[in-house]
Amino acid sequence: MDELLDTVEKQATWVVDTGLFIACGRQQNNKYAALEQFAERNTLTFVIPQRVYDELGGAPNRSTPGQTPINSAIESGWVTVAAKPDYTNSTVSQVMDDVRSFIARSSNRNEDQIEKADTALAAVAVAALQEGADYICLVTTDIDAGEGVVAALEANGFANRIRYKNGFDLIDEIT
């Protein structure tokens, strides 16, 4: 499994979106164990925005996300909730605005229909880079969000510091 990752990815900070955890649970014989093993073998910790943690809570018991063991993943240490980004930081807020515009355009909606919280992934990615991370691997099942975050970071001084991995592809690769 380790050869799946290049050197950059092994040393990157991995920021992970809600949909990856849901997609793991939806697979036959859910794939949490595979995801955990993947994190452990590569000594990675998946960083999730508080927003993602909140989204995963409160799903109906009988649904896939209602059975997502996110809390035990956090207790085991392979998932961690990011500190709240500093929204007054000008780079953070500019990147968030850019992601909002990108998503509005690509989804054919007005910008006022895109919530600030929709851009939490970008804010956490910028904060990590400003705090010294070399590189970000963003894993999401949301193609729009993935492309939007990468474009916004590249436009704001972080060219070649982030890549986006499709969550469905990652699950296929690790199982």
Partner: peptide, 24 residues
């Protein structure tokens, strides 16, 4: 990839993670 997961989930008006599961 023509609509973001969050917008689709919000407009579906279901609990977020559950809406994502339905979309998936």
């Amino acid at each position: 990839g023509e609509m973001s997961e969050r917008i689709a989930a919000r407009e579906l008006d279901l609990q977020h993670a559950y809406a994502v599961a339905v979309l998936q």
